[in-house]
Computed example of a mutant assay.
Amino acid sequence: MRAAVFHGAGDVRVEEVADPSPPRPGDVVLKVTRAAICGTDAAEWDHGPVLGRSGVVLGHEFVGRVVELGSDVTGVRVGDRVVSGAGISCGHCHWCLRSRTNLCAEYRTLGLQVDGGLAEYVTSPASICRAVPDRCDDDAAVMTQPLAVALHALSRVGQRHEESVAVIGVGGIGWFIVAGASRRAGDGRVVAIDIDAERLATATALGAHEAIDATGHDLAALLQELSDGSGFDVVIEASGAAHAPAAATVGVRRGGRVLLVGLHAAPRELDLTRMIVREVDIFTSVAHICDSDIPAALDFLADSDVAAVTAGPTIPLDAVVDEGLRPLAEGRAKGKILIAPGSEPERVRLEPGAVAGAT
């Protein structure tokens, strides 16, 4: 089969690899119908290995049909259309037994430590696969994993309906955080902050009440200005920018919460005394919980236009470097880049405003 294999920094090759072996007990083999890439994939290609390893097939966002079952698999049948969570957990460690599978002591990620879905076929544990509703097409379902990451992040910070929320950085996961926060906002307010006009326009389409260009502004001062000097109830840092965590702790109100989602290449300095005397709570978030976040993301995608609003081009697997990873790493990508793994895929994109899966 054809697959996109990571060999090192700047070296991802679409090449012939062996078809998956017969699945082990508990595993399924999927024929991939749609995949997607994100900043993690681009970082591996650009300057990796960062989180993954050489020789692995990339891809942790994908949807496909079950073509083969291992023994002991229940709840999934050949022919089912499913999405897979990205993380494989052991099920018996301290964290798994407390339903925090994303913190598993033996956690591995498809597409980083285990062969992933930028291929014609992929093997995944059946336990992390979930059926896709008929009303959710493949172009929407492939966004389940990143949306699940965003919904997990929001669950960590416990957003309430009446609260004001600022989201710093609205590309990639930030888009989906805006969508989730806007759906939960009720009488509250969601403000998207970025330095890119197109990303801000997408955030508005996803429900942000305000979209603010931070270019040329001191971020901490801007957060204070936007909240009339009192600070936001919740500030979510999803940009990974060096100055953003410190600004978030300044731009949150007394007794407020800061959620750190963006990954950083180096340690960052925070004013702990200022945080302590104002009782600012700091939350962090990573990955998702398959049992709760994947079904919630599927329902969200099936009943909204989130996928249509965020979708970029659909490209063939052979173009994944030049038309996918490279523009993503260089900040030139427009929308979520989808991958059709077949030999001659149709180059399509969802039209903004069209509900995914609608007929």
Rank of each mutant, 00 (worst) to 15 (best):
Cys129His: 08
Ala141Ser: 07
Glu198Arg: 11
Leu219Ala: 11
Ala148Gln: 11
Thr202Gln: 14
Ala214Phe: 04
Ile195Arg: 14
Val191Ile: 12
Thr215Tyr: 05
Leu223Ser: 04
Val142Gln: 02
Ala141Tyr: 07
Gly116His: 06
Ala220Arg: 09
Thr109Glu: 15
Ile177Gln: 10
Glu106Cys: 09
His161Val: 02
Arg160Glu: 05
Gln113Asn: 09
Ala105Arg: 13
Ala153Asn: 08
Arg156Ser: 12
Ala119Ser: 12
Ile168Val: 15
Ala214Glu: 05
Ala214Val: 04
Ala181Gly: 01
Val157His: 03
Gly158Ala: 13
Ser227Thr: 07
His161Leu: 07
Ala131Lys: 14
Ala220Tyr: 01
Leu154Pro: 02
Glu163Cys: 05
Ala208Ser: 11
Ala166Val: 10
Val114Pro: 11
Ala105Cys: 04
Cys129Lys: 11
Pro146Asn: 05
Gln113Ile: 01
Ala153Lys: 08
Leu223Trp: 08
Pro133Cys: 03
Asp139Tyr: 07
Arg156Gly: 05
Asp213Leu: 08
Val132Thr: 06
Leu226Glu: 15
Thr144Val: 05
Asp138Met: 02
Pro146Ser: 06
Ile193Asn: 05
Val114Asp: 13
Val142Thr: 01
Leu219Lys: 06
His217Tyr: 09
Arg160Ile: 00
Thr202Ala: 15
Ala105Glu: 15
Tyr121Ile: 02
Glu106Thr: 09
Leu223Ala: 06
Thr215Glu: 12
Phe176Leu: 13
Gly174Tyr: 11
Leu222Trp: 08
Thr204Ala: 15
Leu112Asp: 13
Glu198His: 10
Ala148Tyr: 07
Gln113Thr: 08
Gly158Glu: 15
Val132Leu: 13
Asp218Gly: 03
Leu118Ser: 00
Gln145Thr: 13
Leu151Arg: 05
Ala205His: 12
Thr109Trp: 11
Ala119Cys: 05
Arg108Gln: 11
Gly186Tyr: 03
Met143Phe: 08
Leu103Gly: 01
Asp228Val: 00
Pro125Phe: 05
Asp134Glu: 12
Arg199Cys: 03
Gly180Leu: 06
Ser182Phe: 07
Gln224Ser: 14
Ala208Leu: 06
Asp134Trp: 02
Ala148Glu: 12
Asp187Ala: 12
Asp218Thr: 10
Pro125Glu: 11
Gly174Trp: 06
Arg108Cys: 01
Gly169Asp: 14
His217Arg: 14
Gly169Phe: 12
Arg184Glu: 15
Ser227Ile: 07
Val114Asn: 14
Ala208Glu: 13
Tyr107Val: 09
Ser227His: 12
Asp139Lys: 00
Gly111Ile: 07
Gln113Val: 04
Tyr121Leu: 08
Val190Pro: 05
Leu154Tyr: 03
Arg160Asp: 01
Glu210Lys: 05
Ala220Glu: 03
Glu225Asn: 02
Asp115Lys: 03
Ser227Pro: 06
Val122Ser: 02
Ala192Tyr: 12
Leu151Cys: 04
Gly171Thr: 04
Asp134Phe: 00
Ala201Val: 01
Glu198Tyr: 08
Ile168His: 10
Gly169His: 13
Ala208Pro: 07
Gly169Ile: 06
Asp139Ile: 00
Ala153Val: 01
Asp196His: 08
Ser155Trp: 09
His217Asn: 13
Pro133Lys: 06
Ala141Lys: 01
Gly180Ala: 06
Gly172Ser: 14
Arg189Thr: 07
Arg108Met: 11
Gly229Glu: 09
Glu162Trp: 14
Val149Trp: 09
Glu225Met: 00
Leu200Lys: 07
His152Phe: 00
Ile195Phe: 02
Gly171Cys: 02
Thr204Arg: 14
Glu162Pro: 00
Met143Lys: 03
